[in-house]
């Protein structure tokens, strides 16, 4: 475990906690895309199929449980919680996320490291994670007043992706045979999707203004 990987995991964890805290305390999911949250839940469910079969470390198992638990409870909150449900802006969150699932799955069937069930599902989760943020970014662009917590949530997610790239570069130079094109390319695509958001996030931060994305 290197410092980039740890920092990446911690920003990822922080992003999820920020979101859960927002939903739990103010009982509102305004500005949050249910589509993205559902995709993340599917990402974790298909990636962590090995959670009970392969033990890597206590840290690894705990983090997997946290990500599974938090992603499904966020979806539960938005869909089922009496108050949170009311704050969900269904009419703005219109991205057809089903259209992302099939292409990702077909791509995972075609391009993978090994043609086994677990491996294809793992690859599928990587492809899906790369594009899962799209409904959230579209929703952000439509939202007139992006609240601070939502902005910080997306910022932390983007930071997590950036740190993972640094982690891969570090591991490439320090570990023998560390070459993984599938996670690298999908991870790079994912990080690039945040580039535009980051630009406006830093601009608003620099000018001490509220974050607003151009339509």
């Amino acid at each position: 475990m290197n410092i980039f990987r740890l920092a990446g995991d911690m920003t990822h964890l922080a992003s999820v906690l920020v979101l859960l805290l927002k939903i739990h305390t103010i009982k509102s999911c305004a500005g949050i895309s249910l589509k993205t949250q559902e995709l993340f839940a599917i990402v974790f469910a298909s990636r962590y199929l090995d959670i009970f079969t392969d033990f890597i470390s206590l840290y690894n198992t705990l983090m997997k449980l946290i990500f599974l638990g938090s992603s499904f409870s966020i979806v539960w909150y938005i869909r089922r919680h009496k108050l949170v449900r009311r704050s969900y802006d269904k009419d703005q969150d219109t991205f057809r996320h089903y259209f992302l699932l099939l292409p990702c799955f077909i791509l995972a069937l075609l391009i993978n490291e090994k043609f086994t069930f677990k491996e294809v599902m793992w690859t599928f989760s990587l492809y899906l994670e790369a594009v899962a943020i799209l409904p959230q970014l579209v929703l952000l662009q439509r939202t007139k007043n992006i609240d601070n917590l939502t902005g910080q949530y997306v910022f932390l997610l983007g930071a997590y992706r950036g740190l993972y790239i640094l982690n891969w570069i570090y591991r490439y130079f320090t570990e023998p045979h560390y070459v993984h094109w599938i996670p690298w390319i999908s991870g790079l695509v994912q990080t690039l999707l945040y580039a535009d958001f980051f630009y406006y996030y830093f601009e608003s931060w620099k000018n001490n203004k509220k974050l607003q994305l151009p339509a």
């Binding site: 890597i56 470390s57 491996e119 993972y164 570990e175 993984h180 996670p183």
Partner: peptide
């Protein structure tokens, strides 16, 4: 195995 070192990532 060359695949498994990646599986320690989350």
């Amino acid at each position: 195995c060359f695949q498994d070192d990646q599986k320690d990532e989350l």
